[in-house]
């Protein structure tokens, strides 16, 4: 029986006979999923409030990876300083873009909004080439997380374990922000009835700006965290943004919890799929998307569109 399985898929055979290996794949899935969650959460947050699908989110992620390279590798600052710097840098960039460009198009058709964000992708992609050149950089692991941690049944790279922990922490922090703070309540109100909020004398544009900054900072932070295993290089944004799209659609646009579940599912499907049938690596994620959409057209935790257009 096992020989038959081995014939079909050597990876599956190892998976079945080696629990340690299966456990490592589980950790691979979670760590990858959590890194993607941090990035996709920003995308989902922005969509939830601004109703804009931001194609430039991938480029923000790429900038995050580059910034951590500059601050950590070139300037020699600690890794975490670099990661925070990435988040801050992207927050500033986002504020500028929101104030100068996005302002113009909140009332426009969604097509226009999509294309505007795509224009930002094109221009910022080249800007990255001008600033950092076209070389592929490698970013080291932070010294304290360079090695592996003994988990009893197996060793696992400490850096990846950190990702498994930081993802849920960010989920909790975002929930706390949304549910427990005045800012969170106003944001929620802004998604439901922005005229009413404006009539109450609340600065709605400021809420929009702040959400866009927070979402983009998450992309920058996620990019910084990814840098040690997704080396900064031009074009690294093109596939990532599609991965994020898959995650937020599977989870349901605008749902934070949905994004979390979507990211985990993505990690599981990608990693176990790659082990069982290496040739299908990229296909599995899209199949996951199709299956979910067949059952729930608006994603696992999404709400149906409010009437037609």
């Amino acid at each position: 029986m096992l020989d038959l399985i081995r014939e079909f898929s050597p990876g599956l055979a190892i998976l079945l006979t080696n629990p340690q290996f299966a456990f490592i794949q589980l950790l691979n899935s979670i760590s990858q999923g959590m890194n993607l969650f941090i990035i996709a959460a920003g995308l989902s947050l922005i969509f939830g409030v601004l109703k804009v699908i931001n194609f430039a989110h991938g480029v923000f992620y790429m900038f995050g990876a580059y910034v951590v390279h500059t601050v950590f590798m070139d300037w020699g600052a600690p890794f975490w300083v670099g990661a925070i710097a990435s988040a801050l840098a992207l927050g500033v960039i986002a504020a500028i873009i929101e104030r100068t460009l996005f302002r113009q198009i909140y009332e426009a058709e969604h097509l226009m909004q999509l294309l505007l964000t795509f224009a930002i992708v094109l221009i910022m992609g080249d800007l990255a080439k001008v600033i950092w050149g076209t070389e592929q950089y490698s970013v080291s692991y932070p010294a304290s997380l360079k090695g592996a941690t003994d988990l009893g049944i197996t060793f696992y790279p400490s850096y990846r374990l950190m990702l498994c922990i930081i993802g849920p922490l960010i989920l909790i922090a975002l929930y706390w922000f949304a549910e427990r703070t005045r800012w969170g309540r106003m944001t929620k109100a802004a998604t439901q009835d922005r005229e009413m909020l404006a009539a109450l004398g609340i600065n709605v544009p400021l809420i929009y700006t702040s959400v866009f900054i927070l979402g983009s900072a998450l992309a920058g932070f996620g990019g910084a965290l990814a840098a040690p295993f997704s080396s900064p290089v031009p074009g690294m944004d093109a596939t990532l943004i599609v991965e994020c799209f898959v995650i937020v659609i599977v989870g349901g646009l605008g749902s934070l919890w949905g994004t979390f579940v979507g990211a985990l599912l993505y990690g599981l499907v990608f990693n176990f799929g790659s082990v069982i049938y290496p040739n299908g690596q990229d296909v599995f994620a899209y199949l996951l998307l199709l299956v979910v959409l067949l059952i729930r057209p608006w994603g696992l935790y999404g709400k149906p569109e409010a009437g037609g257009h």
Binding site: P10, G11, I14, N18, Q20, F21, I24, Q25, N28, S31, Q32, Q136, R160, F229, S230, S231, V233, G235, M236, F270, N271, S274, V275, P278, N279, Q281
Partner: peptide, 24 residues
């Protein structure tokens, strides 16, 4: 030859491949 792995050209994340090599 017990394992054939094929990451994409321009791939940067090899985790899933590395763990398979370790397992084999």
């Amino acid at each position: 030859v017990v394992l054939d792995l094929r990451p994409k050209l321009r791939a940067t994340d090899y985790n899933v491949f590395i763990t398979q090599i370790m397992g084999a």
